[in-house]
């Protein structure tokens, strides 16, 4: 289809497996339509590699509309690339210029080991949620939905925290590789809502404990996470988590 095109140079991280040594490989992406996303540009490069009998660049994606949290790579040092509030699948080539160099590498954090090329293992995030990132309610136990009233502004704030897609950009952008923003978004969502209040004390404590156990660093307020977050989750969430954590220490009778 007609439309403006550009050509860019890619320096892409290749790594055959978790134990293998990684390296950068250079590829030319020629005549790329500016209406393509970065992932679609990688699709085009991959088709060419396959035609040449070479292994395509492994990268993850699923919904390709910014909501599933599967995709993610650092472009020129920034998780999800240079545009704010944007996942990699929503980053379009129109934001780049003819002749640009794109250095593409996996999300870096010791708790995110590389599986292959740009694919990393983010299962640590699931384990943080398992530690308490939910309301313990069984199917069938609920009362009528309108029996729990939540002021609209509180509900809206909880929604903004709940919008986290679990992509890992926060940890990848943090100099300490801290997962604080991820954990805090869930802690804050549930701390704000009456449904979450019963387990407030244990939730923050257990999630923070798990975060440490996974090898994520602590927050030392660089706030890079907030810049990198494609869903614009705010660092205020971390303040809420710290408060909840302190509260749990004060109330912990065990």
């Amino acid at each position: 289809m007609a439309g403006p095109t550009i050509s860019v140079t890619l320096k892409v991280w290749r790594q055959d497996g978790p134990e293998a040594k990684g390296y950068f490989e250079t590829h030319e992406a020629k005549d790329i339509s500016t209406s393509m996303s970065v992932l679609e540009m990688l699709d085009v490069v991959n088709l060419r590699l396959q035609k040449e009998g070479k292994e395509p660049i492994a990268f993850e994606s699923n919904c390709r509309e910014g909501i599933c949290g599967s995709c993610g790579a650092a472009v020129n040092g920034q998780p999800h690339g240079p545009k704010r509030a944007t996942t990699l699948c929503q980053l379009y080539m129109r934001h780049f210029n003819e002749g640009d160099l794109l250095v593409i590498e996996p999300f870096r954090a010791s708790a995110f080991p590389v599986i292959k090329d740009l694919v990393v293992d983010r299962s640590a995030f699931d384990r943080i949620i398992q530690a308490g990132g939910y309301v313990t309610v069984k199917t069938g136990q609920a009362s009528d939905a309108n029996a729990i009233l939540v002021p609209k502004d509180v509900s809206d704030r909880a929604f903004r925290s709940a919008a986290c897609i679990g992509c890992g950009a926060c940890a990848a952008s943090c100099p300490n590789a801290s997962a604080s923003l991820f954990a805090a978004a869930k802690v804050a969502q549930l701390a704000l809502l009456p449904q979450g209040s019963v387990e407030r004390t244990s939730r923050a404590r257990e999630m923070v404990k798990q975060m440490d156990a996974e090898g994520f660093g602590s927050c030392s307020k660089h706030y890079e996470c907030q810049e990198a977050c494609p869903k614009e989750i705010k660092v205020e969430n971390i303040a809420v988590m710290n408060r909840e954590y302190l509260r749990s220490l004060l109330l912990d009778r065990d």
């Binding site: 309301v135 069938g140 609920a142 009362s143 939905a145 709940a162 449904q195």
Partner: peptide, 10 residues
């Protein structure tokens, strides 16, 4: 009802 009890922010 169930989703609200789980903390789904409708």
């Amino acid at each position: 009802d169930q989703c609200v009890a789980q903390g789904v922010p409708f």
